[in-house]
Amino acid sequence: MQTFGFIYKDIKQFSHFISSLRKMSSTQFNAGETHGRTQAKTEQLVDSCKDAANAASDRSAQAADQSAGFLQQTGEQVKSMAQGAIDGVKNTLGVGDNNTKK
C-alpha cells in the first residue's frame, strides 16, 4: 500500500510540474506576442512620422516657390517704378528721350 502512496505523490508532483510548465509557456508566449505587437506599432508610428515629415517638406518647398515668385514679381514692379521715376526726372530736366531738340 505504501508503494501506491509514493506513486500517487509522484503523480501529484508531476502534475504540478506540468501545470507550472504550461503557465511558464503561456507567459512566455504572451510576452512574445506583446513584444511583436509593440514592434509593429513602433514601425507604424515611425512610418507615420516619416509620412508627416515628407508632407511638411513638400509644403515648405511649395511655400518657398510661392515666396520666390512673389519676391521676383515685386522686384520687377519696384524696378519698373524706379525706371519710371528716373524717366520722369530726366524729362523734367530736359535730358530724357521724350524731349526732342527744337
Rank of each mutant, 00 (worst) to 15 (best):
S80N: 12
T27F: 13
F29A: 05
H16P: 00
N99Q: 09
S15R: 06
A55K: 15
T42Y: 12
A53L: 07
S48Q: 09
D47C: 04
K41I: 07
A31S: 08
D65E: 13
A40E: 11
Q44T: 11
D58Q: 12
E33P: 00
D47G: 11
N99T: 12
Q28C: 04
V89D: 01
R37L: 12
Q83F: 02
G84R: 06
M1C: 11
D51T: 10
R22F: 07
N91D: 15
A52M: 01
A64C: 01
G69L: 04
V89H: 02
M1I: 08
K90H: 06
Q39C: 03
S15V: 13
K23L: 03
S25Q: 08
R37V: 09
A61I: 04
F4Q: 15
Q72Y: 09
T34M: 08
M1P: 04
E43Q: 08
S15M: 13
L71W: 07
R37K: 10
A56N: 10
I11R: 13
S67E: 10
F29P: 01
K102D: 06
K50N: 15
R37C: 03
S67W: 05
M24H: 05
S60M: 15
D97G: 05
A85L: 03
G32A: 00
S19R: 08
T92H: 02
G36R: 11
G88P: 00
L71A: 13
Q2I: 14
Q73D: 14
G36W: 04
V46W: 03
Y8V: 15
A82P: 01
G69W: 01
R37P: 00
K50P: 00
S80R: 11
F6Q: 14
Q28P: 00
L71T: 13
A31M: 05
Q77D: 08
A55N: 11
F14S: 10
D65V: 07
D51N: 14
H16S: 08
T42V: 13
K90Y: 02
D87M: 00
A61D: 14
S26F: 09
N99R: 02
G96F: 00
T34L: 10
N98I: 07
Q2F: 14
R37W: 09
A40K: 12
Q62L: 01
Q39G: 01
A64I: 02
E43I: 06
T74F: 10
G84P: 00
F6D: 15
S26T: 02
K79Q: 12
T38G: 03
L21N: 12
C49W: 05
D10P: 00
T100D: 09
D51V: 14
N99H: 07
A56D: 15
T74H: 11
A56C: 04
L93R: 10
Q62K: 03
Q83Y: 00
A61H: 08
T100W: 01
S60C: 13
T92G: 06
A85R: 00
G94E: 01
N99E: 12
N54K: 09
G96A: 02
T92K: 03
D97P: 03
T42K: 12
G36L: 09
L21S: 05
A82V: 15
G75C: 02
I7Q: 09
Q44V: 11
K50V: 10
Q39V: 05
V89N: 01
D51R: 14
K41G: 01
V95M: 08
N30W: 04
V78F: 12
F17L: 02
K79L: 05
I18V: 15
L21F: 15
G69R: 04
K90F: 05
Q72W: 01
A31C: 02
A55G: 03
